[in-house]
Amino acid sequence: MSNVEALPAPPLRVLLTVEEAADRLRIGRTTLYGLIGAGQIVSVRIGRLRRLRPVDVEAYAVGLSPITTAPEEA
């Protein structure tokens, strides 16, 4: 048996910065600010800071339509 102790899990983030949310979505900060401004993704203001809930980032991603290609014509 090993005497190695398990490391504690990192704390879950309750709110994400715009940069963290953009990283999760693999988009740029400016693009995310545009989505926020258009009301397509929910964010909150805390003083001068803007934050996003991980569940809202996930809901936006789940709601995206998959890319479909038109069938090729013969």
Rank of each mutant, 00 (worst) to 15 (best):
residue 2 S to I: 09
residue 53 R to C: 08
residue 32 L to Y: 03
residue 22 A to D: 02
residue 55 V to H: 11
residue 25 L to Y: 02
residue 14 V to A: 14
residue 4 V to W: 09
residue 40 Q to L: 06
residue 49 L to W: 10
residue 25 L to E: 03
residue 46 I to D: 14
residue 50 R to W: 08
residue 8 P to V: 09
residue 62 V to M: 14
residue 60 Y to H: 09
residue 42 V to D: 11
residue 33 Y to T: 00
residue 43 S to H: 12
residue 64 L to F: 00
residue 4 V to P: 05
residue 45 R to P: 05
residue 45 R to T: 11
residue 48 R to P: 11
residue 41 I to R: 02
residue 39 G to W: 04
residue 17 T to F: 04
residue 11 P to E: 12
residue 47 G to P: 09
residue 54 P to T: 12
residue 9 A to F: 09
residue 13 R to H: 11
residue 62 V to C: 10
residue 51 R to L: 10
residue 62 V to R: 10
residue 21 A to Y: 03
residue 1 M to V: 05
residue 56 D to W: 10
residue 63 G to M: 06
residue 53 R to G: 08
residue 7 L to F: 11
residue 57 V to L: 07
residue 12 L to K: 14
residue 55 V to L: 15
residue 15 L to N: 13
residue 41 I to Q: 02
residue 10 P to Q: 15
residue 62 V to H: 10
residue 8 P to R: 14
residue 63 G to L: 03
residue 40 Q to H: 05
residue 10 P to H: 11
residue 62 V to T: 09
residue 57 V to S: 06
residue 11 P to R: 15
residue 15 L to V: 14
residue 20 E to D: 07
residue 52 L to A: 13
residue 61 A to T: 07
residue 33 Y to A: 01
residue 40 Q to G: 00
residue 20 E to G: 03
residue 50 R to I: 09
residue 33 Y to P: 01
residue 13 R to I: 09
residue 6 A to S: 14
residue 17 T to I: 02
residue 4 V to N: 12
residue 15 L to H: 12
residue 20 E to T: 04
residue 1 M to C: 04
residue 21 A to R: 05
residue 18 V to R: 02
residue 2 S to M: 09
residue 33 Y to R: 06
residue 48 R to C: 08
residue 27 I to Y: 01
residue 9 A to T: 11
residue 45 R to I: 08
residue 38 A to V: 00
residue 34 G to A: 04
residue 33 Y to V: 01
residue 56 D to E: 11
residue 64 L to M: 07
residue 41 I to A: 02
residue 60 Y to D: 02
residue 42 V to I: 10
residue 45 R to E: 07
residue 64 L to R: 08
residue 42 V to H: 13
residue 7 L to V: 15
residue 54 P to W: 14
residue 48 R to I: 10
residue 44 V to S: 11
residue 9 A to I: 15
residue 39 G to M: 01
residue 40 Q to A: 04
residue 49 L to I: 08
residue 34 G to I: 00
residue 18 V to E: 03
residue 19 E to C: 00
residue 55 V to K: 12
residue 62 V to I: 15
residue 57 V to P: 08
residue 41 I to W: 02
residue 6 A to Y: 13
residue 24 R to V: 07
residue 50 R to G: 06
residue 18 V to S: 02
residue 46 I to M: 10
residue 2 S to Y: 05
residue 61 A to V: 03
residue 33 Y to M: 05
residue 15 L to T: 14
residue 20 E to A: 12
residue 33 Y to L: 06
residue 31 T to P: 00
residue 14 V to M: 14
residue 34 G to H: 02
residue 20 E to S: 05
residue 59 A to M: 09
residue 42 V to C: 06
residue 1 M to Y: 04
residue 29 R to L: 03
residue 48 R to V: 14
residue 32 L to P: 01
residue 10 P to E: 15
residue 33 Y to Q: 04
residue 56 D to M: 08
residue 62 V to G: 04
residue 56 D to S: 13
residue 62 V to K: 10
residue 60 Y to R: 04
residue 28 G to I: 00
residue 53 R to L: 10
residue 60 Y to N: 04
residue 17 T to Y: 01
residue 27 I to E: 01
residue 34 G to F: 01
residue 8 P to I: 13
residue 44 V to W: 08
residue 50 R to F: 12
residue 37 G to N: 06
residue 12 L to V: 12
residue 38 A to I: 00
residue 7 L to N: 11
residue 5 E to N: 09
residue 19 E to R: 06
residue 46 I to N: 14
residue 43 S to C: 11
residue 3 N to F: 14
residue 48 R to Q: 10
residue 27 I to S: 01
residue 54 P to A: 13
residue 11 P to V: 13
residue 29 R to V: 04
residue 25 L to I: 02
residue 9 A to R: 08
residue 63 G to V: 06
residue 28 G to N: 05
